[in-house]
Design a protein around this nucleic acid. Structure first.
Lengths: 329, 329
DNA sequence: CCGATCCGTGCAATCGATTTCCTGTGGGCG
DNA sequence: CGCCCACAGGAAATCGATTGCACGGATCGG
């Protein structure tokens, strides 16, 4: 493969000139034309690796998500990738599989590759590697999940308005005994959603007692199903369920079907995160939709600000309620 | 960040020695210990960019898929990523979004980044960039979709056995008027699946006339739904439908529900590609499951063989039928 | 006891770009 | 007409690693 020296020889100039022409720092028409012609003839493409070594910038970003197979993260990763590419950056996606060690391992690899910046949808509570990355000076943006104690801007959705609307929706439909299925305790995201929902319900005089809040051991259909079972076997079973993750909602639905319960007649069901196939379920699922695309784009923009050395604050984007038929009406 | 020179100084040796210790070419205990201690104290990590420049190997692979949001490709990408990482390689995933230009654009970027090898689930029929990559000497492996005229091994699933089994399954359940929804014509994958299925049906004395084969403009729920509608409005509507892609199956299901038709009572439904949430639909969908994980791993192995300069042939892995309730029984 | 061999290590070249410093030329102005 | 300045472009340093070659000390055999 041709290198810059070949081009320089062919154009009868020095490598310095070739570099300048290619980086737009040489407005002399004639030399410029000769160089470009040589580039064309040789099919020359600059060696990105060499350039990265010299400039100490790789034009590559890293994204670590906790579960790439979860459609919410797939969509998020896709949005991030598109925006990054649009702005001239490549993206390396890492899948931590909900394991903190694997997450750290991945962050390590990305730092070794000298990525220009890092986005993380952290698994569990903060990991040592995150702080280390910040200390090492790597621009970092937290995505979807805040991590206490890590000094980095966070881009995520805020469900307050949507949950307020949901509470009203449920109350209007006469649901009096709502329940919530949350992801493993300790994740700020789940806790916050729960608190918001409880407040919103209270405004309609509806209580959300601890007995109707179930924590799933892991955010999977199996976990969701298990919690649903416990909720149904309680003394006062719920007449509406909110799952704070799309996969857990799916598991809850399985349990309901297995028991011959109908949605929405016997039970209203709502999921946090709207994923494409919710609309194709029977009945179509009402969901709190996060603005996935906007989140991804905002994360990239925030990260680029940090890379440019400018300060950048956290971003909160409103989620919205998508009413389908799983609550009645 | 500390570099190899800092380590060398601290350990009182030359950079050459540091390099050799770190690459396991210097078994002298004492020097070795001093170097490793210095590495430890300084928190030194080799600069992957510099190493890549010198060795002309990036230890990075590229994967271009046609639609990352399609759960089949998500799973495939995840499998490829895990296997690549296990073997010490990073992966850059590119999403071509079913557009040949974007695909070429991406391949271009990946080649510029000097990836060691490339895997492609090509959109549409072959693109010029693919041949160019091969000519440039970049190891290439085609994944899931073969591309005529491109000299590269192809790793994909072979549905013959599963479709034979499916034909028998449908025949046993008394379905006599099967139909097929295929992806846009011209893709070898769809055509091959169609041909295999037709052959298998013939063995049971069941015909698959052209009128009961519908090509969708694009592999999406909307496309699948549109074809389903046409099939239902035909003179002799089918009593069973096979969709050659999971998203199109979803669209077909929508159309059936909208018309109040029941699955499987009024219509059997089968999808090619088994995706996790098929099991959570009502009824759970029978599907031809591709061995996604094995495909991804085989692709990585084949690619590494090529990178090592060894010849590697194509790989065909058998798909299998996953019987659920959407065909009756 | 001396020469030959072996092996650990250092020196310096190298990968392919960018960038700094410097030279030489041409043009404008006094 | 001469001087100075601007500017184009070349030579060489640089980024951080790997690696071929050479050197020197130690070991072993004759």
């Amino acid at each position: 493969m041709a290198n810059i020296k070949d081009v320089a020889e062919r154009a009868g100039v020095s490598t310095a000139t070739v570099s300048r022409v290619l980086n737009g720092r040489s407005p002399v028409a004639e030399t410029r034309a000769r160089v470009l012609a040589a580039v064309e003839e040789l099919g020359y493409r600059p060696n990105v690796v060499a350039r990265a070594l010299r400039t100490a910038r790789t034009r590559t970003l890293g994204l670590v998500v906790s579960d790439l197979r979860n459609p919410f993260f797939t969509e998020l990763a896709d949005a991030v990738e598109q925006e990054a590419r649009r702005l001239g950056y490549s993206l390396i996606i890492g899948n931590a599989g909900e394991s903190p060690e694997q997450q750290d391992d991945y962050i390590r690899t990305l730092l070794d590759r000298r990525i220009d910046g890092l986005m993380v949808s952290s698994a569990g509570t903060g990991s040592p590697m995150l702080s280390e990355a910040v200390d090492a000076g790597t621009p970092l943006v937290l995505l979807d999940r805040a991590v206490p104690g890590v000094a980095a801007p966070c881009v995520r959705a805020e469900g307050g308005a949507a949950l307020t609307e949901l509470a009203a929706h449920l109350a209007a439909l006469g649901r009096r005994r709502p329940a919530v299925i949350v992801a493993p305790a300790g994740t700020p995201t789940g806790d916050e959603r729960l608190a918001r929902f409880r407040t919103a319900l209270a405004a309609h005089g509806v209580a959300l007692p601890p007995g109707r809040v179930g924590a799933s051991p892991d955010p999977s259909p199996a976990g969701g199903r298990q919690v649903m079972r416990r909720l149904l076997e309680a003394a006062e079973p719920p007449d509406a369920v909110l799952a704070t993750d799309n996969l857990m909602a799916l598991g809850a639905l399985d349990e309901l079907r297995a028991r011959g319960l109908r949605v929405p007649a016997d039970m209203a069901l709502v999921a946090f995160d709207d994923v494409p196939w919710f609309a194709h379920l029977d009945p179509p699922l009402t969901a709190v939709a996060q603005p996935t695309g906007a989140l991804g784009r905002a994360a990239v923009h925030t990260l680029l600000e940090r890379i440019a050395g400018r300060p950048a604050g956290s971003v909160l984007l409103p989620a919205r309620l998508v009413r389908r038929r799983s609550c009645g009406e």
